[in-house]
Design a protein around this nucleic acid. Structure first.
Lengths: 216, 216
DNA sequence: GTCTATACTTCGATAGAC
DNA sequence: GTCTATCGAAGTATAGAC
């Protein structure tokens, strides 16, 4: 306890995040993870037992963190629409901070939950649950039109993950001059998404940012 | 020419689609592809040369087909908003017909374009190009507000791909009773997405389905 | 064009000393 | 807890007969 004992497990998880994000479960190499983490491969097995267990542990942590932040947003006192803005901000910030997050999430969806055990699936589902709660509350308050919370979740998370994960491809395409010279800035895209969600959730199509003046 | 000669290449591509969609490039096994296609592994190499070349060929075909259908929609004479509805329908139909399509597309985005050569990247980019053209035309006509075509593309394609690709996970979650008992139907979700896109693109927030009655 | 057998490589995992 | 050495399975690809 005196000395700041080895933090091998954390270093391994960081290295695993980087490795799994670029190649997925099957593309990841245990040797590379160990090398990146600057630990011996045997050490990795000593701590995590297997490649699969390491993978699950990593994903559980990622999803738990995202869900936790969303719950914090939901526990705040902002108005429903502002809460959704905040939720998008929070996820976007997390995703840009940990660039491994969007690719890993997308791939796990594409994978159909193979590799995952029950605990990890629970952690994964806690993300839509936390966001859905925010939407459901807005609907109950009449601030949103009656939208299915899970539909709203997909409409929000998918563009965010795909746009952020596609950054390398966009770069490649623009380098190869394969696409028009008008790229979209990340911040612009996030603002666009927030606007889109507001429009999607607005209870009355005629009601803009302005308060409804109880016309009639 | 007399007899309907072997269609090995096509059978191999079908088998490859199934195999690559579940495991990605690294998870796919050449042996399994050959077995599914009921051809010998050597035959597969005879026709395609390598696992990577087979993969690229497959992706090029998928993307080309999607882009082609989008171009057909764009060449029609529907109004811009209806065209976007049609575009969503077309992609959704293709994705449900070929269930391998959404997972493969998501994974390739997550992969950041590794495994892809220039031709395949071109084919991939032709999809956003075709959809972007529809949006750009709507903007030019004043039927849509000035939205970045690529932003619009991501807002449309991402929920569609993610929602459809997530079907296995949703099933698993509901089987395990990990999620509320109010699932969303696929058709409902597509309708939701079409509505969301209409709201996103509407030039005037006060303008509903009704014609603007030049109030003021 | 088709098939069998196999070469060659890579990778996940462990044994066993310290 | 840490490291070296290595096993054994699995996987891509090819050689060569028909």
């Amino acid at each position: 306890m005196a000395r700041p004992a080895t933090v091998s497990p954390d270093r391994i998880l960081s290295a695993a995040a980087a490795e799994f994000s670029t190649g997925g479960f099957d593309g990841a190499r245990v040797d590379r993870i160990a090398r990146r983490a600057k630990v011996n491969k045997a050490m990795l097995y000593y701590h995590f037992g297997s490649k699969q267990r390491l993978y699950r542990e990593l994903l559980r942590r990622i999803f738990a963190q995202v869900a936790e932040r969303l719950r914090q947003v939901g526990a705040g006192d902002a108005e429903p629409a502002a809460m959704v803005d905040q939720a998008i901000d929070v996820i976007a910030r997390l995703a840009r901070e940990h660039t491994y997050f969007p690719p890993i999430m997308l791939r796990e969806i594409a994978e159909g939950g193979t590799h995952l055990d029950r605990d990890t699936l629970t952690a994964l589902s806690s993300v839509p649950m936390a966001f859905g709660a925010i939407v459901a509350r807005g609907v109950a308050l009449g601030a949103f039109r009656p939208v299915h919370p899970i539909a709203a979740y997909f409409t929000m998370i998918a563009p965010l993950m795909v746009y952020l994960a596609a950054a390398p491809i966009r770069r490649e395409l623009s380098d190869a001059r394969l696409v028009n010279p008008a790229p979209i800035d990340v911040d612009e895209f996030i603002a666009h998404l927030q606007q889109t969600m507001r429009r999607m959730l607005a209870p009355d199509y005629r009601d803009a940012a302005a308060r409804p003046r109880t016309r009639r």
